[in-house]
Simulated assay, not measured.
Amino acid sequence: MNWIELKEELEIRELLENYGYFHDGCLKEVHMWTETYVDDNLTMNAPSGLDTNVKLLFQRQFKNPSVIELWFEGITGIYILPTLEKFDSILFEAIILKQKDTYYWSDDIDFDPNQIEYNVSWISAKKLRWREKNDWLGKQNRYGAIE
């Protein structure tokens, strides 16, 4: 499936409703990269703008869709809190918000971008896309091989 860019509140609400607000889901993988690199001549290529991107891969115990990816472009903030020992990583509810020109995802349904706390996971970016990847259920990692 092709990437679908989220722009309007209605599109965000439809995604949340279709994905059950991430209920009985999990954040399976995170992949982060920048547009900064060193070329073959050892020259640094560094854009001056927001050049960090993140993909989040989610799986859940329901169909249509079971697996989605969120692609955040132009990251402005990220805080992924690891699961504590003796706790599980199941998502009960999560939220996507758009405030001004910034998109937010958080595993706290009551997340408030104006009062960010560091006891929940959240990410913010200037652009957000999503797509279904229902054939990506299971334990296999999709963002790079484990060596």
Rank of each mutant, 00 (worst) to 15 (best):
F92T: 08
F111L: 07
K139T: 10
V67S: 06
E5F: 02
K133A: 15
R142T: 10
D112M: 02
N114D: 11
Y104H: 07
R142Q: 12
P82R: 13
I123R: 05
I12Y: 04
Y104E: 03
G49W: 09
M32H: 10
I123G: 07
P47K: 08
I96R: 06
E69N: 07
E17I: 12
S48H: 08
E14L: 15
I123L: 14
Q115D: 15
I78G: 08
F92R: 11
I78W: 08
W33M: 14
I80M: 09
K63S: 12
T34L: 01
Q140D: 14
E14F: 12
L57C: 11
E85G: 07
T76F: 01
M32L: 14
I90W: 09
D112I: 04
K139V: 10
V120C: 15
L27Y: 04
L128E: 00
G25N: 11
S89C: 04
K86N: 13
E5Y: 06
D51A: 07
E17T: 11
K63M: 04
L57R: 15
L10W: 03
G138T: 05
P65Q: 09
E29G: 07
L42K: 15
V67H: 06
N53Y: 11
F111S: 02
E14D: 09
E11A: 08
K98W: 01
I96K: 05
L6E: 05
W71I: 03
L27W: 02
L50A: 15
D110M: 06
D88M: 02
I78V: 13
L6P: 08
F111A: 03
N41Q: 14
L70V: 06
H23E: 13
D107C: 03
G74C: 00
G77V: 04
K63I: 08
P65M: 06
Y103F: 15
H31A: 13
W136T: 05
E14N: 13
L97F: 00
G144P: 07
L6K: 09
D112L: 04
I109F: 10
K55E: 12
K55R: 15
I80T: 02
E17Y: 12
I109L: 07
L15E: 01
L91E: 03
L91R: 07
T102D: 04
S66V: 06
K126C: 08
D88G: 02
E8Y: 04
Q61L: 14
E132L: 03
A145T: 11
R131W: 05
I12M: 08
I80N: 06
G20D: 11
I96A: 03
W122R: 06
K126N: 12
Y143A: 00
